[in-house]
């Protein structure tokens, strides 16, 4: 039983992992076909897993409604929203436009779904402001450096800031746009590359751990 539950899955992981790794160095058509096959399998598994997700979604919101937990009324909108998109989609065969006119599905998509998505994205702007305010509270030396760099960037992006810079620091003969360019292309890029190198090496090692069965937490430990 342990062989079926542990050894076989580990063998599959190792063989598939090594083949996928080898495909990076083997440009042959068999290698390309193998990667395409894996992609197709992933899509098939994804389609079935989506059904599981849908069942989980309905189940958890049904529980909230039946138990009358806090905010249970919002759970009703899950079913209303689902029916509001699925029923028109079935009625119109999944088409958003028929003879140049919007169908019910197209209308729901354009005037409800897109509007709500855009609203969420727009909220981001307000959150950036409140986060910026929080990060501008200088509590350490590092926070001061962050504040200084951000302050110079903000200064350079507005005409008033450029005037202030020229008035106060014009004698340095360095324009604020030059300073911004240096910050963005030297210290910012250096930091970013350092992080990216660490991430790449970490990803290689994590992959090796999974391929060679060192990391097997995803399978349980018994």
């Amino acid at each position: 039983m342990k062989f079926i539950k542990k050894q076989i899955p580990l063998m599959i992981v190792m063989v598939v992992g090594l083949l996928t790794l080898a495909s990076y160095y083997v440009p042959n058509k068999h290698s390309v076909d193998y990667i395409e096959l894996l992609s197709k399998w992933e899509n098939i598994v994804m389609a079935f897993a989506f059904l599981l997700g849908l069942i989980s979604l309905f189940y958890s919101h049904y529980n909230k409604i039946s138990r009358k937990t806090d905010g249970w009324g919002y759970s009703l909108f899950v079913y209303i929203g689902f029916l509001g998109m699925v029923v028109p989609a079935m009625m119109n065969g999944g088409r958003q436009m028929v003879d140049g006119r919007l169908t019910m599905l197209g209308w729901s998509f354009n005037y409800i779904y897109n509007a709500l998505s855009a609203t969420m994205f727009a909220v981001l702007a307000f959150y950036i402001v409140s986060t910026a305010y929080r990060s501008f509270r200088i509590k350490s030396k590092q926070a001061f450096v962050l504040f200084l760099a951000a302050f110079v960037l903000i200064l350079g992006k507005v005409p008033l800031g450029q005037i202030i810079w020229d008035f106060l620091l014009g004698w340095t003969h360095a324009t604020v746009s030059e300073v911004i360019e240096w910050i963005m292309s030297v210290p910012a890029v250096a930091g970013k590359r350092g992080i990216m190198i660490g991430i790449s090496i970490g990803a290689i090692v994590t992959s090796l751990k999974i391929i060679f069965g060192i990391e097997r937490q995803y399978m349980g430990k018994d």
Partner: peptide, 30 residues
């Protein structure tokens, strides 16, 4: 957790010698 620390977290928390040793490979790569 910055990038590689995220990858190291599972090993760090589990404290399993085999997993912790792999972190040394990251250091070698760097």
């Amino acid at each position: 957790l910055i990038g590689e620390e995220l990858y190291a977290a599972g090993a760090y928390l589990s404290k399993e010698p085999m997993l912790l040793s792999a972190l040394k490979v990251q250091d070698f790569g760097k």
